[in-house]
């Protein structure tokens, strides 16, 4: 029975309206998917829905989303570029700082070296002066000593001559002055 209904519906849905008369429920549990008299209705509304969705999508929704995505991509790219720039600046600043530090260090080293050289020079001069003074004093002292020594030898020979003459006079001899001097001088050498 259901078979007959379906066939009739399939063959001439519009013409058999009278024969169909009864709705699908009343016709029994045929498959609603095979109720051909409803196909035109479904297809019509499906096409309407698809056309509406297509126009909404292609005219409004998709360009808008594409625009938003492109804009976001652009913003991200710009932000990244700005961040890169800032990073470069930070690197430059660090370089400058390092350079300044190195300059200061060399300057300090130079000053230290100069100071050291000056001090060395002063020191050398003072040392030379002191050396000269010391050597002068030494020479003076040596001269004095030699004078004193010479004086002492003279005194000793005079004393020796006098002593020899006195001894000889006491012993009753007349002293030959020249012989005494020669003998004393001879002894004093030894």
């Amino acid at each position: 029975m259901a078979t007959e209904t379906e066939h009739a519906a399939g063959e001439a849905a519009a013409a058999a309206e009278v024969a169909l008369g009864t709705p699908p429920e009343a016709a029994g549990p045929g498959m609603p998917q095979l109720a051909f008299e409803t196909f035109s209705n479904q297809i019509f509304w499906l096409v309407v829905a698809l056309v509406i969705i297509y126009f909404v999508m292609s005219r409004i929704a998709l360009p808008r989303i594409a625009g938003v995505l492109a804009e976001r991509q652009g913003t991200i790219t710009n932000d990244l570029a700005a961040a890169e720039e800032l990073k470069q600046k930070a690197v430059d600043a660090e370089e400058a700082y390092k350079k300044a530090l190195a300059d200061a260090r060399t300057e300090a080293q130079k000053i230290a070296a100069e100071t050291k050289a000056e001090i060395q020079a002063d020191l050398d001069a003072a040392k030379a002066k002191a050396d000269a003074e010391i050597s002068a004093k030494t020479a003076e002292s040596e001269k004095a000593i030699s004078e004193i020594r010479a004086g002492a030898v003279d005194s000793a020979s005079a004393v020796a001559k006098d002593t020899v003459e006195a001894i000889l006079a006491a012993m009753g001899f007349s002293a030959d002055k020249a012989a005494v001097d020669a003998a004393v001088a001879d002894r004093m050498k030894g």
Partner: peptide, 8 residues
Amino acid sequence: ALLLMFAV
């Protein structure tokens, strides 16, 4: 199966 049960 559905066709056999409900449609044939």
